[in-house]
Amino acid sequence: MNTFTRRGALGVAAVVGLARPALAQPRYPARPVQVIVPWGAGGGTDATARIVATLLEREMGQPFNVVNRTGGSGVVGHSAIAQAAPDGYTIGMITVEICMMHWQGLTELKRTSYTPLALMNEDPPGVQVNASSPYRDIKALADAIKASRPGQFKASGTGQGGIWHLALAGWLVAMGLRADHVRWVPSNGAAPAMQDLAAGGVDLVTCSVPEARAIIDAGRARSLAIMAPQRNPQFASVPTLNETLGINYSVGAWRGMAAPLNLPAPIAQQLTAAMQKVWNSQEFKDFMNARGFGMVWGDAEGLAKHMEQTDTTLGTAMRDAGLVRG
């Protein structure tokens, strides 16, 4: 139970810290910081948030406690971050869904509801097929899709209207086809979709390469391309759409750190600086590389810009796929 003693020791340190005279402007952070994760324990976002929190704790000398606020398909946690007091003691990890949910009319929250702090990671979608599929490269698959009748090809990767569905829709539109030319088979996440691909149930899966990796390594599936500006150094043999088809289309599932709106600028700058150190640390790199997660950095401004861009791209893709409501 060495965790508890370690936490206990930190707790004592926190109490001692509070006991200091509050006359001088207290140095931030003076007490533990809550890191809200809108997704459940055990997922990729949770794992990323936990390593970031562990390293931030070391960087800033106060505990950073990860709190999973689940519910409402991410809406509950995202609004908990937005509605917290902007004092720097509640921050959170926001995900690409913040640029999707408002288009579907699920929430009022959007990218402008937060003080952006840092972009920590982005995973672009890939195009995976069964190992015994006749399409050896992305060009052959794209030609076959173009020649097929609408609905003949079946693809999967997430639920209806999820990020990988939009990736497929955007790619099809970029090829000059209708967004629903390939039938979307909704699945409960990338892992079941990859399993169905291996079982021969669907023709292609457009989830990210790290999510598909184990099945690819097992020789049951192949990755034909990724929808990103550059190749992923972890999977260097997989080409981009641009170099093979000349389509400059990219969209990805990203994770960033954000705080409620109107966070005082000095605190925001301090947090962004600490997160940059975390991002550059060897531990973080090792973790992300081991998981195969894409390393993309953006400071506060970078995250804001990135969110703006995804918001437009995904908005267009959702409109094309007929998913925009309200």
């Binding site: 079941p192 990859m194 399993q195 184990a214 099945i215």
Partner: peptide, 10 residues
Amino acid sequence: FGIPGDTITA
């Protein structure tokens, strides 16, 4: 195959 059977194996 790296397919999680449940949240724990994930």
